[in-house]
Each structure stands twice: as C-alpha cells, then as structure tokens.
Design a protein around this nucleic acid. Sequence first.
DNA 1: ATAATTACAGAATATTATTCTGTATATAGA
DNA 2: TCTATATACAGAATAATATTCTGTAATTAT
Lengths: 204, 204
Amino acid sequence: MSELTILERRFPGRKAGLKREILEQALACFNETGIESTTIDSIRVSCQASVGAIYHHFGNKEGILGALFFAVLDDQHEFFEQYLARANTLKDFVSAIVMSYVDWVVQNPEWAKFQFQARGFIAKGPLRQELSNRNTKQLKGLKAKLQTVDSCGIKISLPFELIPSLVIGATENYCRAWLSGRVPTCPSVYREQLSAAAWRSIQN
Amino acid sequence: MSELTILERRFPGRKAGLKREILEQALACFNETGIESTTIDSIRVSCQASVGAIYHHFGNKEGILGALFFAVLDDQHEFFEQYLARANTLKDFVSAIVMSYVDWVVQNPEWAKFQFQARGFIAKGPLRQELSNRNTKQLKGLKAKLQTVDSCGIKISLPFELIPSLVIGATENYCRAWLSGRVPTCPSVYREQLSAAAWRSIQN
DNA sequence: ATAATTACAGAATATTATTCTGTATATAGA
DNA sequence: TCTATATACAGAATAATATTCTGTAATTAT
C-alpha cells in the first residue's frame, strides 16, 4: 500500500494541486450535505478557488462527480487485483473478493460513502456508458480468472449470473449499514464470517 | 392483493386526484432522468398542473420525494408483514423475507428503482430521522417475531447485527442488478435459490 | 524570446427552485 | 340555505444556483 492518498495517486504532480484540492473539498461537501444539495459555491468557498477554476478543470458539477467516482473505482479495482492475484483456489477466490472489499471500505470510509451515493447519479447521467463498460470489463476479467483456479472439488450448480450477488451482496449490505451508522461494529471484525458465509451460500 | 395502485392505496379519495397525478408523473420523471436532474417544471408539464398546486401539496422538491418514498416504504412493509405472518419456523422466516422482497420488487419495478435512488437522498435530507425511526421500529418488530418462531433445532452462532445483511444482502444486490439491466433474468426465477442460499449463509 | 497553450479570476447570464399574492372551490357550523 | 373558514389551485415575482463568457496571468513548447 502506498502512503499517498487516492487523489495524489490518481492526479499526481504539483500542477494538479488545485485540482486535487477542489476534489478533496467536493468529496467532503458531498458526504456532509449530500450530492444534490451541495452547491458549486459551497465547494468554491471550501477550497478557496474561483468558479472559473472549477469549471475550467471539470466542466460542470457532473464532471466533478465523475472525476471523483472513477478515481475511486480505479483505486478500488487496483486494490482488489492485488488480493485476487494471490488466490489459487475457488475458496481463496471468494475470500479475496470479500476481504478486499471489506478492507478497502474500512481503509477509505469517506470514499466508500461517496461511492454509494454517487453510483446512482452516474448510472443516470452522461457517464453511465463509461460505468457500464467498466462493469462488463471487470466481470469478464473475473470470469477469466475463475477458469484458472482450483475448484476445490466443488461443482457450482447455481447459474453464473447469481454468483456475484451471492458472493458480495451480504458484505456490501453490511458495509453500507456500517458506513451509515446503522450498525456499530466495523466490518473488519467480521471479515472471516462474511467470507465463510459467502462460501456457504454458493454451494448446494 | 388489492387491485389499486400504491398511490390509490396511500392517497385515497377523489379530492386527492391531482396529488396522485403529480406523484405519478414525478415518479416517472425521477426514474427516467434521475432525481437531481428532474426539474419541478418538467413534473409540472407532465401532470399539467401549476407550480402553485405542486408547492401547495408538497412544499418543495424534497416533499415530493418524501411522499413517494414513504408511500413505497409503507406499501413494502405491509406486503412483507403478510408473508411474515405465515412463517412459523426459522427457515420459513428467512424464506418469507427473501420471497416477499423478490415478489414486491418484481410486482413494482418502477417503485423499487425509485426506492434505490431515493434512499440516499432521504438519508441525508431533513427526513432522515423519520427513515431512521422506521428502520429501528421494523428491526425491533423482526426481533420480537424471531423469538416466537420454531428455531428448527438450529443454534445461530453468528452475531445478530450480521444476520439482516446475510439474509437480504444477496437478494437485494441481485434485484438491483436486474432493475438496472445488468442481469437479464427476473429475480422471480431465482426465488428458491436465493432463499436457500440465505438460509445456508446464516448457519455455521 | 515569443508564440501558444493552459490555468485561473470574477462579472454576466441562464436555469431552476421557491415564495407570494390572488381567486376559486369545498367544507363546516349557524 | 347562508356564511365563515379552510383548503385547493393559478401564475407572476423573486431568490438561489449553475453555467458561460471575457479577460489576464502563468506555463510550456518552439
């Protein structure tokens, strides 16, 4: 794991300084007051920039949202790939998905909160195609990797389209509950249980 | 099941006619173009009302959102209670939760889509307390019912706070995927599998 | 060194949400 | 039935917000 923040990794260099600052404050605003009720002006005040600067870098509000959203997505994906690379059996495979998800959320709670909020917006707006492309691509990668893995003597009889939901659904649901304060206990505490439950759920 | 629509059940009577019409068109707009990018004026045009009428009934945009959101929540809850009433064993209990969720979503896909979109907004805005109250209340009801049920000789050793996520997480995830078009197969097809997987996931 | 591009500032404008004032319609009490 | 009171609606006026536009500084490339 690098010491840099997500923004420093995705928008590196000194000349991207203001860009990062705008994004950082925008993230804070979005998480505090919600995406819709965050105004460009509130972001502008937070980062002490001008509307001109903001619109120069991002075009419009959706542009800020998109820059943040795809930065998260990329970061999460890289993180996930690191876990996946070490998985040799099907059980490891399931475990890697669950664990990487939990660990990433716990390490980046503010980004995770934002991601949950923003997905809906992106799925509607002009960037929906981009999101859809990435989803298909990632799914294809997963399928390929899945072929190369030792299946532990288990024959999965459930239809493939159900598997992703079974593997990640409960974990995602719990992480969301934790981020919103509905449950107090950090998902890290339940890494093993969530992983084991996912594994049980796909067998029959 | 009543023949009436959700709106007719929640806002009955002739004098609530325009109110229902506004809500119906607002729902359509929200689902088509997203909540943020839906303007009051686009709703006004769709239902051929005046801004005055809209603001008279709902106060502001958030008010429309809230009326729709809690109407859905109430409807879903009643539907769910019908299933739950028939559950006598723990396994039935889990099954009732999964099945009622799937059936409701499949019967009311537009409302379900809206619910997923709107939850984030409500969780931020001024109605968040109301939402939180309902969640706690429902959870309390579930716990109470859980005590009265035959546990099938199973001793659940997982912490309680994990259970709701394990039971409904995968199903919710799949329904969401279906509503957004990411998977083609209707969740109804997988009712049994989802229910069985949830049941396996909570045992260890 | 200078031309060209990129980064920024802030006033001007456009879009959208909300309020306000007035009128009609319904409802309740006499 | 009459009238007072509240509720339902219409649409112009205003406020809040997003976006554009024009100009200037800084940076980069030639």
